[in-house]
């Protein structure tokens, strides 16, 4: 009974799915293939390397400090960083007083302790980075209807994220001749910018890092567009996972111990099983 029922059910599913296949194959064969510019000309992120890459990577704190400066002077105009608190900046190599001073440079929402009225006040280390907009509607209204995403987790929220952010920042330009020849209808609507590292090629964010020396670095590093883009990408890798280096460093002793224990376990197993080794029949 089970086998007859199973046979019928099996044949039933097969017929139905092959019917889907036949219709799909017919459509596939007869329909005209429509290519898409964003499918063909979207590029994978550039190859770029950072101090914190690899199993032995470490934060380049000077670079993170520069990246913080780029975020503060460029990105923060539109993008929030809501999962990061000022106290976290201590990771970047600042001491307690420096963190307090950095926090105080920001204005955060507060409450007047005497009247209870909503006010703004200078930030303290326990505060989180403030949002540049009071709400999403204000954010969308000021940006061509596209809400600038929060950047805290950006490098983890995209495939190969740190390289993606760097590529996007340095990837603005004009559509290539090849693209224009193949897709004459392709255009970049007003208010959007062409960027071949963005999935649909037209990005609502105008080029944020435009010219060299847009930021004046405190440590005297030459602030080229490439350098600033790289620095802020490294900074965002840190905001996405401040525990990255702690994680990799604690991994080594764990793996070392496990390797040792597993080798011991291997020889223990060999030793124990030698008692049960098949003895050749005489």
């Amino acid at each position: 009974m089970i086998r007859i029922g199973g046979f019928l059910i099996g044949i039933g599913f097969t017929v139905v799915v092959l019917w889907s296949f036949a219709v799909g194959a017919y459509n596939f064969a007869t329909e005209e293939k429509v290519g898409a510019a964003e499918y063909e000309f979207h590029k994978k992120p550039k190859d770029v390397s950072f101090e914190h890459d690899g199993a032995f990577g470490k934060w380049d704190t000077a670079q993170l400090q520069r990246g913080y400066q780029v975020y503060k002077e460029v990105c923060a105009a539109c993008h929030s960083l809501k999962f990061v608190a000022f106290r976290d900046l201590a990771d970047l190599g600042y001491n307690e007083d420096e963190v307090k001073a950095l926090a105080a440079e920001w204005t955060v929402p507060g409450i007047d302790q005497d009247t209870g009225e909503a006010i703004t006040r200078p930030g303290t280390p326990v505060d989180y980075f403030p949002s540049p907009y009071p709400n999403d509607i204000a954010a969308a209204a000021g940006n061509n209807n596209a809400i600038p995403p929060d950047l805290s987790l950006m490098t983890k929220a995209r495939a190969n994220g740190t390289a993606y952010v760097y590529s996007l920042l340095t990837g603005y330009g004009e559509p290539s001749e090849e693209l224009k020849a193949k897709y004459p209808d392709f255009s970049t609507p007003p208010g959007l910018s062409f960027n071949e590292y963005f999935p649909n090629l037209n990005l609502a964010m105008a080029q944020p890092i435009v010219i060299d020396d847009q930021v004046t670095y405190a440590d005297g590093t030459a602030a080229t567009v490439d350098q600033m883009s790289k620095d802020v990408s490294a900074f965002l890798a840190w905001t996405a996972e401040p525990t990255l280096i702690e994680r990799k460093q604690s991994g080594w002793p764990v793996l070392g111990f496990l390797l040792f224990a597993t080798i011991l376990a291997f020889f223990a197993k060999k030793q124990i099983w030698s008692a049960a080794k098949p003895k050749k029949a005489e």
Binding site: A55, R247, K248, S250, G251, V254, L255, L258, L259, A261, T262, A265, F266, A268, K269, I272, W273, A276
Partner: peptide, 26 residues
């Protein structure tokens, strides 16, 4: 002790792969 020993070794190999992923490619 035969299969506890064999499972112990297998567990070691599995843990190396698992924690390798946890610590380096989570």
């Amino acid at each position: 002790p035969y299969y506890t020993a064999k499972d112990g070794f297998g567990l070691g190999v599995a843990l190396i792969l698992y924690l390798g992923l946890v610590f380096f490619l989570p």
